[in-house]
Design a protein around this nucleic acid. Sequence first.
RNA 1: GGACAGGUGGGUGAGUGGUUAAAGCCAACAGACUGUAAAUCUGUCACUCCUUGCGAGUUACGAAGGUUCGAAUCCUUCCCUGUCCA
Length: 325
Amino acid sequence: MCAFTNEPLGTKSSTGVNPRLVAIAGPTGAGKSALALDLAEEFHGEIVNCDSLQLYRGFDIGTSKTPPGARRGIPHHLFDILPASREFSAGEYAKAARAAIGEIAARASLPIVVGGSGFYLRALLEGLPETPERDAELRAKLAQREQRRPGSLHRLLARLEPARARRIHERDIQKLIRALEIRILMRQPVLERSLATPWRGYSILKLGLDPDRAPLYTRLDERVRWMFTSGIVEEVRRLLAEGATGGEKPFESLGYKQALAHVRGQTTLEEAIASTQLETRRYAKRQWTWFRRDPEVRWLKGFGGDAAVRQQAFGALQSFYKTCL
RNA sequence: GGACAGGUGGGUGAGUGGUUAAAGCCAACAGACUGUAAAUCUGUCACUCCUUGCGAGUUACGAAGGUUCGAAUCCUUCCCUGUCCA
């Protein structure tokens, strides 16, 4: 067994050879974490979370976070770094992830980015334009304007930035507000792409897990039922007891939303389970839609835990190492 | 056995003679997404064909008949379901 190292081969002065980075994408429940652990063991890797909810402390069962006891000694980064009350953004995530990846590569380990948050992954790997942070006051004003005159936000954006307006539906208020916020705060149109800050310096291999839909859905249904019989409700009670109001961001997520409603007596347990199962399936579909569009993803047919998939992934990594020499 | 109520597209549920291939909702399927992203939003949704058009044809509202220029809608019989009375 050869010892893989992420050290650029040759001397430091040799023509820049980039450190490598592996990303594992795919729908929820496809076995990304399992595959990541296997790859990390084999290729001396460290895992970097790219899941918008596993960032949160105390949200463990409903996010299917790998428990510390099951991490096989592999370092895990960007898990449990946020309290429930902390709002986050793709931009902040990218910054944090790049820092973590830099450190991992510096010690010649292989960063393995794992997660289903496509937008976060793109922010990390491709960069986001440099735009202003959110401005609560302005957002409130825009929201009010829309409420008073429905459709007005889209009309306004169409006037200020027609190209952008064409890509956002007039009813997608969330995105319209963000686009207008940027335009107003920057006082100039955001040029397509030109402001993105590309991330250079890494050779990237993107793997995508693509299990058959029916077995994935069966597995998701089982996983959701397991969550509800194994403590997500208690987890929510504990978070509330520790001071959470239930209005925090992660409480809007799959499973937690339903568990909260159940804790508050608004739904039965079975209703909560059924609703979570349904929405989880739809979420998986949206993830597929997102990742399928990425031509760089190298798809592996099956679950991350399948022996055949693991072999394919190993093979992909081996040739990745060779071609990057 | 009797009295009511009802049987509509994958589900639910409107429609009670013509602009109804049949509202709405749900599911399903497809998609968008430049800082809330497990979020937010959109499209399609009987079948076939083409000149892809607010196009043509076929099939469809339990079944079979009937009335009518025209029926998911009215009539008859039958089948089935629910509630109540025996």
